[in-house]
Design a protein around this nucleic acid. Structure first.
Lengths: 337, 337
DNA sequence: ATGAAAGCGCTAACAC
DNA sequence: GTGTTAGCGCTTTCAT
């Protein structure tokens, strides 16, 4: 403890020397302490403490081919939709000694391949893909890497490996049925321009035609992803200008829905009487708005925990029985619709 | 390309053999291509492509002692305050080929030390601490690790290493002055119970005594961190019950402020005439609410970029001139106060 | 219950 | 411009 400046940090050998054992014994003290005699264990632990030894996981990972790192890829972190999933993922991983590496792919495909290489290069124990459309090349690289992959927030027809998701089309459909049953006849959609939101939109329009007749068309206002409250307001403005008779709005996010809600209030439109509003995501942040938002709830926490479980199971040699899980969704009926 | 199952992945040696060069040449083709002849480079690149080689960064990092991983620690990711900082951090790191590792410390101190070991063990190029109070033991470990550390979102008296932050006390003070100047005389505070929010609260109370007299007391309603819109509503309810004459509220987050705003509207209180509301964070998500929130703006993006810059500079051997930067804050006057 | 030797895949250091 | 050798710090394998 000569100076405050750190010298090259202690290694197994430093600890071993001090504890008068071999390097491997130090390793065992950390990874399988039950193999050591109480006495040795004690000595090694003392040496670890007094050297301030912190195992180099890069070296360990290299040798054992177990990095204990799990990568998560999200389009962008500022879209609050995936936050619960990431939180649950981190927590679940943490409980098992794994760490999360975060990659933001952006909503464009360009950076995706570079990001993938940066991730695969670290030989993570697993990769969790969250709401990402992946290029054919990216899919191939992932499959060839042999790393367990869990796709989430979607139900793709040909999963790379494992999957925990739900059907965006069916959500659109369910929203259409919900609004139709409540007597709405002129719904409009305000949607972010990302692929999953687009599929909910599509699902809604298709279902609506079945409900209201073959040539019933549903107007759509597209706004850029990630969606914001402000673009919800703008969206409603444009929607009403083009279709003044709209009596219900289904949005691709709760944030958009809140924007619509605020704009409707500002215009003196009674919600839900004159205008029903339905969001997507059941954003916890927004619990408490008045009128309370009717929305589609996705169990992001459960998705995150399941994804973590899949990867841990696989990495510890347990077979994952159900590689594809549809966790579904539920419509939370509150005041706004 | 026999089967679809991945065999052990290709290494430098596989590529080298195929390109009829040595392993180091492959390494150079990736890390310093300008050293190689056009011809060799071409051959190596071809071999990389046809083997699907992805460099093992664990091995590279071990040898070169450069992991190109930067760790960020946040209390929780579901508090949306740090999102801009994380986003900027990821983006800035990405531009330089670094990856972000995310750790959630929770708002309790307990998990902190374990998390720190998991982080230090990976020998990250740098560590960014975001809004975390660290134990003395944790601070020591960080200093001894020799890893560049940037603390953010605070101005601590004795930084571990580098720092980009601002003074929470001065924000409280500025908020008090702002409300006083606008004629408010009975402010109340609604604050999350985390340490930084508490210091803003303290700063407000201290300043208020200077403005309004030694025995002017400012009522405070504490709510649990992370703060939510719902706890803002509850907070206002309790505040008004105990202090019906409150004419201004300063909250520790914009989410709380929005809750207060909605509750005030539900009670028929005119904002800002009967009740002025001032938030903290200038949450981008909330741009577009009516009346627009008066709030304290922190440039999280700039903080994230600066933190990344500090770590990259340091890791590439450049001296960081100003190790401690106060990036300040600004009060954004909108409609609610 | 403990140790010795070897090697994971890469790159620094030093040739030529 | 390219190659040889060695070794980063750990853990696997095999011995005792």
């Amino acid at each position: 403890m000569a100076g405050k400046r750190a010298r090259a940090s202690a290694t197994v050998n430093d600890v071993a020397r001090l504890a008068r054992v071999s390097a491997i014994t130090v390793s065992r003290a950390l990874n399988s302490p039950e193999q050591l005699s109480a006495d040795t264990l004690e000595r090694v632990r003392g040496a670890i403490r007094s050297t301030g030894y912190v195992p180099n996981l890069l070296a360990g990972g290299l040798r054992s081919a177990k990095s204990k790192l799990v990568a998560a890829v999200v389009p962008t972190i500022t879209g609050p939709v995936f936050l619960d999933t990431i939180q649950a993922l981190t927590d679940a991983l943490d409980e098992h000694g794994y760490q999360l590496m975060l990659g933001q792919a952006g909503y464009k495909d360009s950076r995706e391949d570079a990001l993938l290489d940066a991730i695969i290069g670290r030989r993570p124990t697993g990769i969790v893909l969250t709401g990402m459309m992946h290029s054919a090349e990216g899919r191939r690289r992932l499959m060839n890497s042999g790393i367990p992959v869990v796709e989430t927030w979607d139900l793709t027809p040909t999963p790379i490996d494992m999957l925990v998701g739900f059907s965006h089309e069916r959500i659109g459909e369910a929203a259409a049925q919900f609004l139709y049953k409540r007597g709405r006849r002129h719904p409009g959609l305000i949607s972010g321009d990302d692929p999953r939101a687009a599929r909910r939109t599509q699902g809604f329009s298709d279902a609506w035609r079945k409900l209201a007749g073959k040539d019933a068309t549903v107007p759509v206002e597209w706004v850029p992803a990630p969606t914001t409250l402000a673009s919800g307001r703008k969206g409603l403005g444009r929607m009403l200008a083009a279709h003044p008779d709209v009596d219900a709005v289904f949005t691709s996010s709760d944030l958009l829905a809140l924007g619509v809600l605020m704009d409707a209030q500002a215009r003196g439109l009674a919600v839900p009487y004159q205008l029903a509003i339905m969001g997507f995501g059941d954003l916890g942040l927004l619990a408490g708005v008045t009128p309370a938002l009717t929305t589609v709830h996705i169990d992001g926490t459960r998705m995150g925990r399941m994804a973590a479980g899949f990867i841990i199971d696989r990495s510890e040699g347990r077979e994952v029985a159900n590689r594809v899980v549809d966790i579904g969704f539920s419509i939370i009926e509150r005041e706004s619709a």
